[in-house]
Design a protein around this nucleic acid. Sequence first.
DNA 1: TAGATTGTTAATCGATTAACAATC
DNA 2: TAGATTGTTAATCGATTAACAATC
Lengths: 210, 210
Amino acid sequence: MGERSISIHVIERLTTYLRYLKSLPDDGTASVSATKIAAALDLNQVLVRKDLAEISSGGKPRVGYQICSLIEDIETSLGYNDSSSAILVGVGNLGRALLSHKSFRETGVRIVLAFDCDEAEIGTDCCGVRIMATEKMADLCGRLKVHIGIIAVPDTAAQEVCDMLVGCGIKAIWNFAPTHLKVPDDVIVRNENLAASLLILSQQLRERLS
Amino acid sequence: MGERSISIHVIERLTTYLRYLKSLPDDGTASVSATKIAAALDLNQVLVRKDLAEISSGGKPRVGYQICSLIEDIETSLGYNDSSSAILVGVGNLGRALLSHKSFRETGVRIVLAFDCDEAEIGTDCCGVRIMATEKMADLCGRLKVHIGIIAVPDTAAQEVCDMLVGCGIKAIWNFAPTHLKVPDDVIVRNENLAASLLILSQQLRERLS
DNA sequence: TAGATTGTTAATCGATTAACAATC
DNA sequence: TAGATTGTTAATCGATTAACAATC
């Protein structure tokens, strides 16, 4: 009842608001207005106001929102408090980039283990995350209550890894391989289509120039 | 003046159609229907049909589209023919992952040069791309007619690199750093918000489970 | 012909923007 | 009080889905 879930677009913007708010000096009583946030992030004022209205405990007319409580409200709505765990498969350049990506640290999602098939890597740590042999995945996932899997392997191995993850009880997959994964109905897949992203930018540029 | 530009969503889907079509066996005369593409990629039939209608030279009722000419039509609409060049700044794990990412190769956008401030890397090659000192950026960009820049440096350096790129005449920036970049009006920025992407997946999962 | 498929037109849905009343 | 700002309601815009006619 009620509690309509937050849309993708809103979540995306909330993370940028949060970043901006944290960059502001705050003595614990400082305030900020939606107008100011919008200007700083090149967004529409009303959009920001609507986003904040959706998740915040309220601002004061003529004053704005108290920075520290707004930060708290955003973090709560993004689930920073009750955090969940994820495992990463594939510790190549991309995998390492993800493991070292600072911005995940602050997030409600933590990468707790990594898997790779390269014997030389197994048993070592990367950015504080232990790299394990893929054979141990099923056993470890069961114990750790992990529900999110990240696929950072070459596209030829992606479906195989995906099946393995599903077999381990993973219910949400973040896929960086340029492959459409086949999964059961109860598993969510989010594809990170990097090639498309670059193409989109290139097309927008072309359009602008013409 | 007709020629309305293709939307972001359509571009994204077109890249997946292309991938699927290329995976099909084709003797040069084989056909495929929108229905089949939709089923293979878990998409709505009508959506696929509308996308294809927008960019293809037409299909035949009861038969479908000729695979090889559909591939050509998609590639043309995505600008695979008149390709453009991009430079990458930051050859850490993420930068290397992008340089080695196979799917860019087939794209109309080519990464022609990389820059880094690490002396040890300068002058070496990574995946066939030469790594240069950032000081030489302005000079090289002018000669190479590059308009796209990719920022894969730590967030603390992102704005500085951004300013540098703008100074070199770059008009479109693909930003992986979790920072809102300030740019002149004639420069396009596309932010790749990885933390948000993972959060979205995590939220969708939470919603599904509850 | 019959029927699968294309392609178009209308309906729905969701997100953004605009207008405006409420408030401190 | 006057005015900046919140928050809500209505209008617009765009994307997806549904319905249906056209076609081979």
